[in-house]
Design a protein around this nucleic acid. Structure first.
Length: 668
DNA sequence: GACTCGAGTCCCGCC
DNA sequence: GACTCGAGTC
């Protein structure tokens, strides 16, 4: 397919700032990729080109397409295509020492963050009923994204809760720094900080590239915005691509204003609008346009369809099991009749609890599927245990990992001992790891425990050396073996099948290390651990990609952004799910974002679009009645239907509407 | 220090 | 329904 004039313009403008305002399905990824190729064709070295995405999935997709387009031309050198977070990790590995962190810093994921937050709350004597670790993390994250450091948090805190959080923030941040660790927000924030504090560092990093492209620019938050500006300041070859109607990350600080005021930041910027939609049928676009028009604050766009097709459907079922059955049966039937392939289908949902019944049905029907995103693999206990060992080998100051493995599997260092050691370490302002060396000084530690501590230190020290010397895979395998992790699993899980599956995931970690070592020219354990923390899953282990070749895709609406499928099922179209109950309770703007999220879902579909809703949905063990999503009424042009108003007003999970007829929300 | 049992809590979305 | 946490017991 050749490029249309607008796309052509975006592809051919190779220098200077440019804003590409692209509606859904107008080929914006295509434009970015062709620009990359065009730049290379004009003699720009691939390594001088940086393209930034938000999700790993988008980065992988782009890398893949770039390789395809470039073909034999440049098989060696590749443009740098990565997420903001992995870009920042690379920058920080080189530069974070300027801020007093070790170069091999640990990245704390959500679980680690919670542990740190829990400890911080304990320190300031706030009970978890007053403030849960998750709440604290949320406030801290908001502050970090706004560039507020712990010293300033106290002055911006408004409520009592925020004052507590400000105190918690100080402890939290101190603990991270003491452990030589950063959280996800720090990755962006510290990169910005090192740039603003050290002009030479900024120039050095900016000088690595001559061209910068940012996809989904409407989703940049303040920190990302600063980083983009810092990297493009000199060469000014900055091309950003986005669509304000698809801004769905306000909850992590994204500001649509960045894309709206691009022309102010870069006055000589060229603007290109892409408005021809090549993806969806006219019928699907009609629904999408009708929906998004309910958002009052937006840049009106005219999306022109290029194809016509069948009317989308709304289906109503009894409960979530019936919903899964219906969808999976339809898919299986279509594939059996050779009308479609498994890979043509995507099942999109709002929350991560929704895919479960679908997975059950898909397995039962022997339909291949890929559950995209969902950090479930790395959330498993056994994976976290093994990874904690690896993280500790990289960085013995990593307290969270140390505490996780110090007595896992049990080696006789009990809770009492650990508490005593932690208190001693905190008292002296030293890492717990150092306290282990002088455990006997802290009294009340029996000879047996001392011996266990000594053995543990020896173990970690020895494997630390091995991790720097020999092949990583062998090291990990031997470590897992030596700590007797398999026996530990057998002890914990009486059912041999459980032991088997859990041991299989431990093997997966070993495989992941192997995959990492294969594609990295200079593999290091810290590199692997950081990659894992970013969720940058193993792509060379082509199990996923092979499966993805012809498997039904299951994913959240958020991770579906940027993708397209011949047939899309949007499931759980109910008040409380989409829009989510938290957004219903929130300020007015939150519903608009849910609507954009719904819009993103609708516009993923090329030819077939099906929305489903269940009359009851099981929650915390009980089936509860639901209300149809208000978006169903808006989509079908029934916003004057009295039930629409009921949806809008009713709290989720409330009583069922008066009659069953009220649930006839659309064509069946 | 390890284990069992019952009460209480529970989650939006992503890197 | 699933999981965590704390109290109580060995």
């Amino acid at each position: 397919m050749s490029l249309n004039p607008a796309q052509q313009e975006a592809v051919n403008t190779l220098s200077g700032p440019m804003l590409v305002l692209a509606g859904a399905g107008t080929g914006k990824t295509r434009v970015v990729m062709h620009r990359v190729v065009n730049l290379i064709r004009h003699g720009v070295a691939p390594s001088r080109i940086l393209a930034v995405t938000f999700t790993n999935k988008a980065a992988r997709e782009m890398q893949h397409r770039a390789a395809e387009l470039l073909g034999k031309r440049q098989s060696q050198a590749k443009p740098e295509i990565s997420t903001f977070h992995s870009l920042c990790v690379r920058i920080l590995r080189r530069q974070i020492h300027h801020l007093g962190y070790p170069s091999q810093f640990a990245i704390y994921d959500r679980g680690d963050q919670e542990s740190v937050a829990r400890a911080a709350l304990r320190e300031i004597r706030v009970s978890e009923t007053t403030m849960r670790p998750g709440d604290l993390i949320q406030v801290i994250s908001r502050w970090k994204m706004a560039g507020i450091d712990p010293t300033r948090a106290g002055s911006v805190a408004q409520s009592d809760k925020e004052h507590l959080a400000a105190a918690g923030y100080r402890r939290y941040q101190n603990a991270l720094k003491a452990a030589g660790a950063v959280d996800f927000d720090d990755l962006l924030g510290l990169t910005g900080e090192v740039f603003s504090r050290h002009a030479d560092v900024r120039r050095e990093e900016a000088a690595r590239f001559d061209h910068v492209m940012v996809d989904e620019y409407q989703d940049t938050n303040a920190a990302q915005y600063r980083i983009v500006k810092a990297l493009a300041a000199e060469h000014r070859n900055l091309c950003v691509v986005g669509d304000d109607d698809q801004s769905i990350y306000a909850w992590r600080g994204a500001e649509v204003t960045h894309i709206l005021r691009f022309k102010n930041d870069w006055p000589d910027a060229k603007t290109v609008r892409l408005e021809t939609n090549y993806r969806s049928t006219r019928q699907i676009l009609d629904w999408s346009n009708r929906l998004i028009a309910f958002n009052k604050v937006r840049h009106a766009k005219v999306l022109r369809a290029t194809a016509s097709g069948e009317e989308p459907r709304i289906l109503q079922v009894q409960d979530e099991t019936a919903e899964a059955k219906l969808v999976v049966e339809e898919i299986a039937r279509a594939v059996a009749a050779r009308r479609a392939r498994h890979g043509d289908f995507a099942i999109l949902f709002r929350t991560n609890e929704q895919p479960r019944p679908f997975e059950d049905e898909l397995r039962r029907a022997k339909v291949p599927y890929v559950l995209v995103g969902g950090t479930s693999f790395y959330d498993r206990k056994e994976i976290r245990d093994v990874l904690a060992y690896l993280k500790l080998l990289v960085n013995p100051r990593d307290e969270i990992s140390l505490l996780r493995v110090i007595n896992t599997p049990g080696r006789g260092i009990g809770q009492t001992t650990v508490t005593r050691l932690v208190e001693a370490a905190v008292g002296q302002g030293k890492p717990v790891w150092d306290a282990l060396a002088n455990a006997e000084q802290y009294g009340c530690v029996s000879p047996a425990v001392l011996k266990a501590i000594g053995a543990f230190r020896e173990l970690i020290g020895r494997y630390r050396k091995l991790s720097k010397a020999g092949p990583l895979v062998d090291m990990v395998r031997s470590l897992v073996d030596e700590i007797g992790y398999r026996d530990e699993l057998a002890r914990l899980y009486p059912n041999p099948d459980d032991v088997q599956t859990r041991w299989a995931s431990v093997e997966e970690v070993v495989n992941a290390v192997g995959g990492y070592c294969q594609r990295e020219s200079r593999p290091t354990l810290s590199g692997f651990v950081q990659e894992v923390a970013l969720g940058d899953r193993d792509t060379s282990d082509d199990k996923e990609s092979r499966l993805a070749g012809d498997a039904v895709a299951l994913m959240t609406l958020h991770s579906a952004k940027g993708l397209e499928f011949p047939a899309v099922y949007m499931v759980g179209m109910e008040e409380g799910l989409l829009p989510h109950k938290r957004s219903i309770a929130d300020a007015a703007g939150a519903i608009d974002e849910e609507r954009r999220l719904c819009y993103v879902g609708l516009t993923r579909a090329e030819r077939r679009l099906t929305l489903t809703m269940a009359l009851t949905r099981r929650k915390w063990g009980k089936a509860r009645p639901t209300l149809p999503s208000r978006f169903l009424y808006e989509i079908t042009g029934q916003a004057d239907n009295p039930n629409y108003l009921a949806s809008v007003r009713k709290a989720p999970g409330g009583a069922a509407p008066a009659s069953n007829n009220s649930r006839q929300t659309g064509r069946q």
